[in-house]
Amino acid sequence: MPAFKTIEYDKKGGIAHVRLDRPSVHNAYDTAMRDDVFQAMEAARDDGEVRVVVISGKGRSFCAGADLTEFGSAPSVTAAREARWGRDVWGLFLSMDKPLLAAVHGHCVGSGLEMAMLCDLRVAAGNALFAMPEARLGLMPAAGGSQTLPRSLGASKGLDLLLTGRRVDATEALALGLVSRVVPESRLSAEAESLAESLAALDPPAVAAVKKAMRHGSGMSLAQGLTLEARLSLRLAAEQGRAPSTPSHQIEGRFP
């Protein structure tokens, strides 16, 4: 494991922790952090002992967004595009078979919120503040925010946040569906840990199958999604050495 400069990575009992660690700038996301997060996520993906990944921030915030002091430093737009797909850190998040849990507090803004939205579950501290200020700054989301927010909240609530850039507190974030749980700040890491433990106790192939069904099924017609689900459940049963719970006609996509 390489020494990380902008994050902390450790694992214990099947739970890997990625802690964003630039507290003096509210864990602003820069290219060094991108490289560190990418390596840490690859490590978590490839480590057979890791069953769940928890992403959190050290200091007062989860992540205040992209480090704007770096903007405009790419030699050209086309070079920036090359770099984006050369190290597709967000694609790596989405391709993970293991559950990703974001435990957020303080500022969870811009790229920080986008990173959290690429996780499977989000737990927020009561002091968490959410916003997508990009358009107010002449920017637009580039870590999936224009895709993940509307898919989680619906187009209108998503556009409300994306166009106004307004701040949303934890209570409203829960009502909007940005996060699934809110806990007192002092309880955040304990709650995240216990949720992570319950996720780590699950059967990894079953978790992977559910994640695949959700991720790929959501972009399909319902009929295609049902076929995908049936196929995944059959394969899962085979992997686990038990009889399939899916009737064969459903798998083959025909009437009984």
Partner: peptide, 10 residues
Amino acid sequence: GAPIASRFVK
């Protein structure tokens, strides 16, 4: 906000 950014977001 920036008009082109808002249109692109939409």
